[in-house]
């Protein structure tokens, strides 16, 4: 992820680029090396286990199951919409937090990042209390427009957006704080309105940070489980995303759960690698 963050390269990394051999020659202290290797094993072994225990022979049949395809498409579709919603709402919020000062700004910043630490199930319940049929806002949606979010695909998107947007907001806010705001002042003296300066200068400068936030939000939405199942339920074809499908197959057909897990892993890695490659090319 560090390559995706806008100022991701730590100050010292320039030196590393100049003399890659020097770092390799340096003695690594044992108290750092041992835990580091343990961490690698801890993070990589589960992924390896997925590969090792996968039922490769049943794989084609399991993958071609229509329900699998439904769940996968639903996941990709809703995660992408959730990432887009996070972008449209989150970038302006990040700008507000980074560039303006208003009373209670710190509080707002703390509150909008709460979903980061909130257990997603709790998030799902909270969403029901607001947008459910009898919820604070949901009641009126139902009454005036006959429209109800829970247990619909739109509800999945809402749940995923709730959980994913704070990632984007934090990434973009960090990028904005790192960008010299005097660039906007220069643009103004050249005749640009604040909105034009934001689009053509600020946004262009923080684009890598926005992309990093977008990828984070998308990945988080793709893996979303707790808020989704609580708020949107588990209706195959409508609200049953991949993580839900995986979890529920685990008892009935462990092999299928494994295959779905691998599929989800492969898809998200492919998308991340693709974006990363594109971003790296854009930087050169």
């Amino acid at each position: 992820m560090s390559r995706l963050s806008p100022r991701g390269r730590p100050a010292g990394s320039g030196q590393r680029q100049r003399g890659p051999g020097r770092d390799r020659d340096r003695d690594v202290p044992l108290p750092l090396l041992v835990p580091a290797l343990a961490a690698v094993a801890f993070l990589v072994l589960p992924l390896l286990a997925l590969l090792v225990r996968a039922p490769w022979r049943r794989m084609p049949a399991l993958l071609l199951d229509a329900r699998v395809l439904d769940a996968l498409l639903l996941s990709l579709w809703t995660a992408t919409l959730a990432a887009a919603a996070s972008l449209v709402l989150g970038v302006p919020l990040a700008w507000l937090l980074a560039r303006t000062s208003f009373p209670g700004r710190g509080l707002v910043r703390a509150l909008v990042t709460v979903p980061l630490v909130l257990p997603p199930v709790v998030g799902g319940i909270a969403l029901l209390l607001v947008l459910g049929r009898t919820g604070l806002v949901g009641r009126w949606l139902e009454q005036w427009w006959g429209f109800s979010l829970p247990f619909t695909t739109a509800g999945v998107v809402v749940a995923e957006t709730f959980v994913a947007m704070p990632f984007l907001v934090l990434a973009v806010e960090g990028a904005l704080r790192g960008a010299d705001r005097r660039n906007e002042e220069v643009a103004a003296t050249l005749g640009a309105s604040p909105w034009l300066a934001f689009r053509r200068v600020t946004l262009a400068i923080v684009a890598p940070g926005v992309l990093a936030g977008l990828v984070l939000a998308w990945a988080r939405a793709l893996g979303e489980f707790g808020a989704t199942i609580t708020f949107a339920g588990n209706l195959p074809g409508t609200t049953q995303t991949m993580p839900l499908a995986i979890y529920l197959r685990r008892s009935s057909d462990p092999d299928a759960a494994l295959v779905l897990s691998l599929l989800l892993l492969a898809v998200s890695l492919t998308v991340l690698a693709g974006l990363r490659g594109r971003w790296a090319v854009g930087q050169r």
Binding site: R182, N183, V186, A188, V201, A204, I205
Partner: peptide, 18 residues
């Protein structure tokens, strides 16, 4: 600023990096 008839050169150049 954008409606003032001024051309400004800033001390630190402040070229748009992108």
């Amino acid at each position: 600023p954008q409606r003032r008839p001024l051309g400004v050169v800033f001390q630190d150049d402040l070229l748009f990096p992108h």
